[in-house]
Computed example of a mutant assay.
Amino acid sequence: MLVFTLYLLLRGHNAPGGGFIGALIAVIGLSLLMFAESPSYVRERLYYSPFGIAMVGIAVSALSGVMSLFVGLPYLTGLWWKEVVPLGTPLLFDVGIYLAIIGGVMGMLLKVNEELD
């Protein structure tokens, strides 16, 4: 499931998908793992705290918007670097949303599941 979420993340601006739906599917996969094993097992596999993952995601999303201000364009205007690869700030924004949703939702699910145990 986690590999499929990366596929959805990377095709998000050309077809249905993106950071939000990819992250929700990743959370479903991680929550299935949490119910099969335990919340502590999933916390060990995440390596970083869910709050830290969410904060990095918010920072990446904000940075992708600020980059357009440096070139004199409005906030969140898409910038594209076609010389390297078809890469742009919309993909960075989606990666930030992906991390923020995974961190936020998994943090809540882990906390609720730990409280119930």
Rank of each mutant, 00 (worst) to 15 (best):
Phe51Leu: 07
Asp94Met: 03
Ser49Asn: 09
Ser31Ile: 07
Ser68Leu: 13
Gly19Asp: 02
Val66Met: 02
Val112Ile: 12
Leu91Gln: 01
Trp81Arg: 00
Ile21Cys: 09
Val60Thr: 12
Leu73Asp: 14
Thr5Arg: 08
Thr77Ala: 09
Lys111Cys: 07
Ala36Lys: 12
Leu46Phe: 09
Gly72Asn: 14
Tyr48Phe: 15
Ser61Leu: 13
Met55Gln: 03
Tyr47Trp: 10
Gly96Ala: 04
Gly107Gln: 04
Tyr48Trp: 07
Pro74Ser: 09
Ser61Lys: 10
Gly29Arg: 03
Ser49Tyr: 00
Val3Ile: 03
Gly72Met: 12
Asp94Ser: 13
Gly88Thr: 03
Gly103Ile: 00
Leu8Thr: 05
Leu109Met: 14
Phe51Gly: 04
Ser68Pro: 07
Ser31Gly: 05
Leu87Lys: 03
Ile53Gly: 05
Lys82Ser: 15
Pro90Lys: 09
Gly88Ala: 09
Met67Tyr: 10
Ile58Gln: 04
Val112His: 14
Thr5Gln: 11
Val56Pro: 02
Gly65Arg: 04
Val56Met: 08
Ile21Ala: 01
Met34His: 06
Val95Asp: 09
Ile97Gln: 12
Gly19Trp: 01
Tyr7Trp: 15
Phe35Thr: 11
Asn14Phe: 15
Lys111Leu: 06
Gly107Phe: 07
Arg43Val: 11
Ile101Thr: 01
Leu116Thr: 08
Leu73Tyr: 15
Pro90Cys: 14
Ser49Val: 09
Thr89Tyr: 03
Leu24Gly: 04
Val42Phe: 15
Trp81Tyr: 02
Ile102Val: 15
Met1Gly: 12
Met34Ile: 11
Leu99Phe: 03
Tyr98Lys: 02
Ile102Gln: 07
Tyr47Gly: 00
His13Cys: 05
Ser31Asp: 08
Ala62Met: 11
Ile21Leu: 00
Ile58Tyr: 00
Ala15Phe: 12
Leu33Ala: 15
Leu6Thr: 07
Arg43Pro: 02
Leu99Ala: 13
Ala100Lys: 01
Ile102Tyr: 02
Ala26Gln: 04
Gly29Phe: 03
Leu116Ile: 08
Val71Phe: 05
Met55Tyr: 11
Leu8Ser: 02
Asp117Ile: 07
Pro74Thr: 06
Gly96Ser: 00
Arg45Leu: 15
Met55Trp: 11
Val60Phe: 05
Glu44Gly: 08
Gly103Met: 04
Pro50Phe: 09
Leu87Tyr: 02
Leu79Ser: 12
Leu46Gly: 08
Val95Gln: 01
Ser38Asp: 02
Ala23Glu: 03
Leu92Arg: 13
Gly65His: 05
Gly19Ser: 12
Leu30Gln: 05
Leu2Trp: 15
Val95Leu: 06
His13Trp: 14
Pro74Gly: 15
Leu30Ala: 14
Tyr75Val: 07
Tyr48Ser: 13
Leu63Gln: 01
Pro74Glu: 06
Tyr48Pro: 05
Phe4Asn: 07
Gly96Asp: 10
Pro74Trp: 03
Leu8His: 02
Thr5Phe: 09
Phe35Cys: 07
Gly12Asp: 10
Ser61Asp: 10
Tyr7Gln: 07
Lys111Pro: 09
Ala15Thr: 10
Glu115Lys: 08
Ile58His: 00
Gly57Phe: 15
Gly107Cys: 08
Leu110Met: 05
Leu2Arg: 04
Val3Asn: 01
Leu24Tyr: 06
Phe20Arg: 03
Leu87Gly: 13
Pro16Arg: 14
Leu109Pro: 08
Val66Leu: 07
Leu10Glu: 00
Tyr7Leu: 08
Val95Thr: 01
Ile25Asn: 12
Arg11Leu: 08
Gly29Cys: 10
